[in-house]
């Protein structure tokens, strides 16, 4: 991978320091105030990445590298946010942060500039969080017939272009936008396409309670 832009080189080098420190803070026993300020620090680094991405003259490789860094560091930010939310007793938000962290690292991993598996340990770590910090829950999932789609990159019908959903193109991720779909089924499943659509309530000791806190 060839990086010629000096600002991209610098922000890439800065990434390692930011990520190392963030991972050191993303431990449950660390002080919550340190964790809150780490989230803000990562936000500021992500803003720098966004600003640099709007700079003209960057190559496709450089743009995609910046987007990769953004998704990677966002994942660690969400991990810390999850811990903060858990400490504050905000379990719904903690779950959302964990799933966002998993989604971000999954996207980063698919678009890893060196096609490396070095994110696997981190991916496993987030998976373990899900298993030990939260109960087993069910998810709502839909199925249907997709009739009209658009590619977020070129705005053509997704069927008619060559972009692949989930892949990076000049610093943007391709999304297949579904514009028309005929619903066939909605059901509760254990293994859904998205873990955001989840069961919220459960009956516990005869009462209708929050599925995470049982309150």
């Amino acid at each position: 991978m060839i990086i010629t832009d000096i600002e991209v080189k610098n922000i890439f080098e800065e990434f390692n320091a930011i990520a190392d420190n963030a991972q050191n803070i993303a431990i449950f026993s660390r002080d919550i105030e340190l964790q809150k300020s780490e989230v803000l620090e990562i936000d500021s680094y992500m803003n720098k990445l966004s600003d640099l991405m709007s700079k003209k003259g960057l190559t496709e490789t450089e743009m995609n590298l910046l987007l990769f860094l953004k998704y990677s560091i966002d994942s660690v930010k969400q991990e810390i946010q999850m811990i903060v939310n858990l400490k504050l007793g905000e379990t719904d938000s903690a779950w959302t942060a964990l799933i966002l962290a998993q989604n971000c690292i999954s996207i980063a991993s698919t678009n890893h500039p060196f096609k490396s598996n070095q994110l696997n340990n981190y991916i496993n770590r987030l998976e373990i969080y899900e298993k030990i910090l939260f109960p087993k829950i069910m998810f709502a999932s839909v199925g249907g017939i997709i009739k009209k789609t658009k590619c977020s990159i070129c705005k053509l019908e997704y069927e008619d272009c060559d972009h692949m959903k989930g892949k990076f193109y000049s610093g943007k991720m391709c999304v297949r936008e579904i514009h028309e779909m005929e619903l066939e089924e909605v059901s509760m499943v254990e293994n859904p396409a998205s873990k955001m659509n989840r069961q919220l309530r459960i009956t516990y000791k005869g009462k209708d309670v929050d599925i995470f806190s049982l309150k």
Partner: peptide, 24 residues
Amino acid sequence: KAENITVEYLTKDKPLLRARKSAD
């Protein structure tokens, strides 16, 4: 197609696509 291997739909109609609920 990106590897120059052609796969064609059985007919020229615009394909309807089934999305399933499962992560499989």
